[in-house]
């Protein structure tokens, strides 16, 4: 029962990721795509945590922590490129 609820939550998260992907593909400007990429990263963090929960291994969470701490670097790089400060 509980696991079923988690699987539903994970499916909704995947659906959200696919919707975000639409913006990544069509997004007219570069910032649009970067925003979509940021959303996809955050959904990735959720999915990794869910995999850790379903597989029952705490150690998988370390990969999610790396994304949580470092994912904003990619966004800042593109932002600095846009404002010519790289």
């Amino acid at each position: 029962m509980g696991d079923l609820l988690f699987l539903i939550a994970g499916s909704i998260a995947i659906l959200a990721g696919l919707l975000g992907l639409i913006r990544f593909v069509v997004g007219p400007t570069l910032p649009d795509r970067v925003v979509a990429f940021d959303v996809l990263t955050i959904i990735t963090i959720s999915v990794i945590s869910l995999i850790a929960h379903v597989a029952g291994r705490i150690i998988y969470l370390d990969a999610a922590i790396v994304y949580g701490l470092l994912s904003f670097l990619g966004v800042i790089v593109v932002a600095r490129y846009l404002e010519r400060g790289l």
């Binding site: 670097l73 800042i76 790089v77 600095r80 400060g85 790289l86």
Partner: peptide, 9 residues
């Protein structure tokens, strides 16, 4: 280190 570079180029 990259974050330091980005903040103060």
């Amino acid at each position: 280190t990259l974050l330091l570079f980005l903040a103060t180029p």
